[in-house]
């Protein structure tokens, strides 16, 4: 009983909960009127490009159902990522590949243009963005840096960095797994890897159940690996922080083989699971 109380008290001291995150960080540091800058990925990209921050190349934006056929036909026949501009939690993201021989494929299996267009329509109808109408963002598919592909072959791996008022606070690498269907969302089965923010060296792998040193699918050693271009990642994050009137951000960055670190999206209500991944509480940042 005493032990239980003691443990609760210890958790209280280190863990940042949703209530406290909202009241002490999100509301005071991220004025609501600027939320849309981060929630609308098309807008985010425009601001970042202006600040010379590296982002994935934008192929097409589709805003109304009537334009789908025409605009999809005008989209380059290249492997691409189709996502809702206002989606959250990785929902509604469709990654398709293209080559002359097989046409459109998704994860190696053929996918019809009808299915793709219907997905685009669903995005516009707001299925992935809490019912509000949405835009569709079609952008280049990132070619992962070989360090990252060595760690995991599926989907988009990215690093989430928490920045508070110009200071890098915590970071984790998110690796898709078979059970996450290629998505980098921890609650959909992806695993998180703690990152030493000074060096960019990977710490332990967390799958919501336990900690490990290897990838759950491939068995590839992960702990101890050095992430590529880490100083540039940190520099990019600070640039992003400076570009927005928002001061508590979760910045998602992918590693492209040729273009280096690339900002995927920014989040004004970054999740709290990163604490478990790093086995380190975020409360210290507000004390």
């Amino acid at each position: 009983m005493m032990k239980w109380f003691k443990k609760r008290k210890e958790i209280d001291q280190v863990a940042l909960g949703i209530n406290e995150r909202n009241l002490k960080l999100v509301y005071p540091l991220n004025p609501r009127k600027y939320f849309h800058l981060a929630d609308d990925k098309v807008l985010t990209k425009a601001i970042l490009e202006e600040q010379k921050v590296s982002v994935a190349e934008q192929f097409m934006v589709i805003e109304s159902v009537g334009d789908i056929t025409e605009k999809w036909a005008a989209t380059p026949r290249k492997s691409c990522v189709i996502k809702p501009s206002k989606g959250s939690g990785g929902g509604g993201i469709l990654i398709v590949d293209y080559d002359e021989e097989n046409g459109w494929t998704k994860g190696g299996k053929p996918i019809s243009e009808d299915t793709i267009e219907r997905h685009i329509a669903n995005i516009i109808f707001g299925v992935f963005s809490f019912g509000a109408d949405d835009k569709v963002l079609i952008e280049e598919k990132i070619i992962h840096h070989k360090t990252v592909t060595n760690l995991c072959h599926l989907g988009i791996a990215d690093v989430r960095v928490i920045v508070k008022e110009g200071e890098i606070v915590m970071a984790m690498l998110r690796l898709p797994t078979k059970s996450s269907d290629g998505k980098a969302n921890l609650h959909q089965g992806a695993v998180g890897v703690g990152v030493d923010i000074e060096t960019g060296i990977l710490k332990k792998v967390f799958d919501l159940q336990s900690y490990a040193e290897i990838h759950p699918d491939s068995g590839q050693q992960i702990t101890g690996v050095q992430l590529p271009d880490w100083p540039k990642v940190l520099d990019t994050c600070l640039k992003v922080d400076a570009a927005f009137p928002l001061n508590y951000l979760g910045i998602d960055i992918a590693f492209d083989q040729h273009k280096g670190p690339m900002v995927l999206e920014i989040n004004v209500r970054p999740g709290l699971e990163i604490q478990n991944v790093n086995q380190d509480g975020l409360r210290r940042t507000i004390i």
Binding site: K7, I11, D12, A15, G17, I18, E20, Q275, N276, G281
Partner: peptide
Amino acid sequence: GRWIGLRVTEYRRFKWLV
């Protein structure tokens, strides 16, 4: 509305931190 305590379920969620 001004209460910053951990939610009951969060004690379980963040048990990894201790």
